[in-house]
Computed example of a mutant assay.
Amino acid sequence: MADHDDFREFVRERTPALSRHAYMLTGDHQLAEDLLQSALASTYRHWRRVRDTNPEGYLRQAMYHQHISWWRRKRVREQLFAAPRQAPQADPSDATALRLSIAQALGQLTAKQRAVIVLRFYDDLTEAQAADVLGCRIGTVKRHAHDALRRLRDIAPDLLDDGERTAR
Results as ranks from 00 to 15, higher is better:
97 A>S: 13
97 A>H: 11
97 A>Y: 06
97 A>M: 11
97 A>I: 03
98 L>N: 09
98 L>M: 14
98 L>A: 15
98 L>P: 00
99 R>N: 12
99 R>H: 15
99 R>D: 12
99 R>C: 11
99 R>L: 15
100 L>F: 12
100 L>R: 15
101 S>H: 09
102 I>V: 15
102 I>K: 03
102 I>C: 08
103 A>C: 02
103 A>Q: 09
103 A>M: 03
103 A>T: 05
103 A>Y: 01
103 A>I: 02
104 Q>G: 10
104 Q>A: 14
104 Q>F: 01
104 Q>V: 02
104 Q>N: 10
105 A>E: 03
105 A>R: 05
105 A>N: 04
105 A>L: 07
106 L>M: 14
106 L>E: 00
106 L>Q: 04
106 L>T: 03
107 G>A: 07
107 G>F: 01
108 Q>E: 10
108 Q>G: 11
108 Q>S: 11
108 Q>R: 13
109 L>I: 01
109 L>C: 06
110 T>E: 12
110 T>Q: 10
110 T>C: 07
110 T>D: 10
111 A>S: 14
111 A>R: 13
112 K>Y: 13
112 K>I: 14
112 K>V: 14
112 K>N: 10
112 K>A: 14
112 K>E: 14
112 K>Q: 14
113 Q>W: 09
114 R>Q: 06
114 R>T: 01
115 A>F: 01
115 A>T: 12
116 V>K: 06
116 V>W: 03
116 V>F: 06
116 V>D: 02
116 V>A: 08
117 I>E: 02
117 I>F: 07
117 I>Y: 02
118 V>Q: 01
119 L>N: 12
119 L>S: 14
119 L>C: 08
120 R>C: 05
120 R>I: 08
120 R>Q: 05
120 R>M: 11
121 F>I: 04
121 F>W: 12
122 Y>N: 06
122 Y>A: 13
122 Y>R: 09
122 Y>V: 11
122 Y>F: 12
122 Y>E: 05
123 D>V: 03
123 D>L: 15
123 D>G: 02
123 D>M: 10
123 D>P: 00
124 D>V: 12
124 D>G: 06
124 D>Q: 11
125 L>I: 03
125 L>D: 01
125 L>G: 00
125 L>V: 02
125 L>M: 11
125 L>N: 02
125 L>S: 03
126 T>D: 02
126 T>S: 15
127 E>G: 11
128 A>N: 04
128 A>G: 08
128 A>Y: 07
129 Q>A: 15
129 Q>M: 09
129 Q>F: 09
129 Q>I: 09
130 A>D: 00
130 A>M: 03
130 A>V: 06
130 A>W: 02
130 A>K: 03
130 A>L: 07
131 A>K: 06
131 A>S: 02
131 A>F: 04
131 A>R: 01
131 A>Y: 05
132 D>A: 12
132 D>H: 11
132 D>L: 07
132 D>M: 06
132 D>R: 10
132 D>F: 06
132 D>K: 09
